[in-house]
């Protein structure tokens, strides 16, 4: 069952040098309970896509076109008051830096109470019980007592757990996770990845997992979306894409990982750097860095679908990977 349907989403930022097309015609579906990885480098538009779903785009940014439907209900253009009923209840978000999401002067308990009250007024005891329940769910020891602690009394990993607990409070159908483990150490990241997977399995929560790290995504997500310069350029089941990428950019990213090279030998590198969104080449945005580019690449390729895979390339790779 389709939970979220995004169609031709366009989010632009008005600047002195003209419109910056951070998200430029993005379409995808998320099924209930599905974990989808959204991968790209800085400036690819992956985070702005996440923010746009929740309508969290402030001027000079604006969603100038497209549609975001949650269980059939259109979210683009919804008045703020109604969006607020969606945020935190049906869709919640976990950010990279938990110190920036949590209010430093309120206790964890108070912040969780506010998040519950925003949607439904119940008794203080019921709210406390719910808060303890979700804190225990994300592995915070001694949860009942920790409710009275302030964010600074938690370690970085524990603080991210609290942020995840807050996201879970109202049992949302979808959690957008924007690089939630990037700021954490590997040992803590492994703990949180394990717990997030268990959450999705036990509670049936769908997740959009935004990250730059293919290995992390391959360990949580079942489907993968790869973004480049504001567009989705490849889509498919995560392991199929990683085993046999069809877009030269995806293939280049995978090949450049040290895990795929002989130690001490040169890594396969993608030449050049990510393009400025102000100065995109005509046609395929990856064309100046692409070893397979031909004359026809000056025309924008469409996202071509074939069974459960999709690729935006005139000359997709069809082998068994590189």
């Amino acid at each position: 069952m389709t939970l979220l349907q995004v169609r031709d989403l366009q989010t632009h930022f008005a600047t002195r040098s003209g419109a910056l097309k951070a998200v430029d015609g993005v379409s995808f579906d998320i099924a209930a309970g599905e974990i989808v990885g959204l991968v790209g480098e800085s400036g690819s538009g992956k985070s702005v896509t996440g923010f746009s779903i929740l309508g969290l785009i402030d001027p000079p940014g604006r969603i100038i076109g497209g549609s975001v439907k949650l269980e059939g209900r259109e979210l683009v253009g919804l008045p703020n008051a109604e969006l607020r009923g969606v945020r935190g209840r049906q869709i919640s978000m976990v950010f990279q830096d938990p110190s920036a999401t949590l209010n430093p002067v309120l206790t964890i308990g108070r912040q969780m109470q506010l998040a519950l009250e925003a949607h439904e007024k119940t008794s203080e005891a019921a709210m406390r019980a719910r808060a303890v329940e979700v804190l225990e769910r994300v592995g915070i020891p001694d949860a009942a007592r920790r409710l009275d602690a302030h964010p600074h009394q938690f370690s970085g990993g524990m603080r991210q757990r609290v942020a995840i607990a807050i996201a879970l409070l109202n049992s949302p159908a979808l959690i957008i996770c924007d690089e939630p483990t990037t700021a954490l150490d590997v040992s803590i990241q492994a703990q949180i990845l394990t717990e997030m997977k268990a959450l999705a399995r036990d509670l049936g929560t769908a997740m959009i997992w935004i990250s730059h790290d293919l290995a992390t995504v391959s360990s949580v997500a079942s489907r993968l979306l790869v973004m480049y310069a504001g567009r989705i350029i490849e889509e498919g089941p995560v392991r199929d894409v990683l085993r046999a990428p069809r877009h030269p950019y995806t293939a280049g990213l995978i090949a450049s990982l040290p895990a795929h090279a002989v130690p001490g030998r040169d890594l396969v590198q993608i030449p050049g750097s990510t393009p400025s969104l102000f100065d995109l080449p005509p046609g395929c945005a990856f064309q100046p860095r692409c070893t397979y580019a031909q004359a026809g690449c000056g025309v924008m390729p469409n996202l071509l679908r074939e069974e459960n895979r999709a690729v935006r390339c005139h000359f997709p790779l069809n082998g068994s990977g590189s």
Binding site: V186, Q189, D213, A215, S218, R239, L242, R243, L257, A259
Partner: peptide, 8 residues
């Protein structure tokens, strides 16, 4: 703890 690159 390092996430493995899983293709299988």
């Amino acid at each position: 703890s390092v996430p493995k690159f899983v293709t299988d």
